[in-house]
């Protein structure tokens, strides 16, 4: 079944994706999403009754890695990439519910 998005749904999807859409860009984003949704609705046209969902088959599954702590690279190098540091931890802003 072909579906579409309106301005409100476009903004809700953008929020879920953690992306802001400027008010003047909402219509353009909505139209381009609707173009793709309209084209992709084709996937509903093929009769797939009784067809299982796709999964990858493998010849031989890889063995699992041992579930143990591995040696770290230089911890200081990772900390250098953090936007802010608090001791040995990355510091992040409060989540909204705690503000």
């Amino acid at each position: 079944m072909k579906m579409s998005v309106d301005r409100e749904i476009t903004l809700r999807m953008a929020r879920a994706a953690q992306i802001r859409v400027a008010p003047e860009d909402v219509d353009h984003m909505m139209d381009s999403i609707n173009d793709i949704l309209s084209f992709c609705a084709l996937v509903g046209d093929l009769d797939c009754t009784g067809t299982p969902d796709f999964t990858w088959r493998m010849k031989k599954r890889p063995s699992r890695r041992p579930d143990i702590t591995r040696d770290w690279e230089d911890r200081e190098r990772f900390k250098e990439k953090a936007p802010a540091i608090d001791g040995n931890f990355f510091r992040v802003p409060r989540i909204s519910s705690e503000v």
């Binding site: 079944m1 609705a41 996937v43 509903g44 093929l46 797939c48 067809t51 299982p52 969902d53 796709f54």
Partner: peptide, 17 residues
Amino acid sequence: EGYYQNYYGPALKVRTK
């Protein structure tokens, strides 16, 4: 919800076919 049932779910089956 909704889009998954009409797009992603069918796409998984079409891929099998």
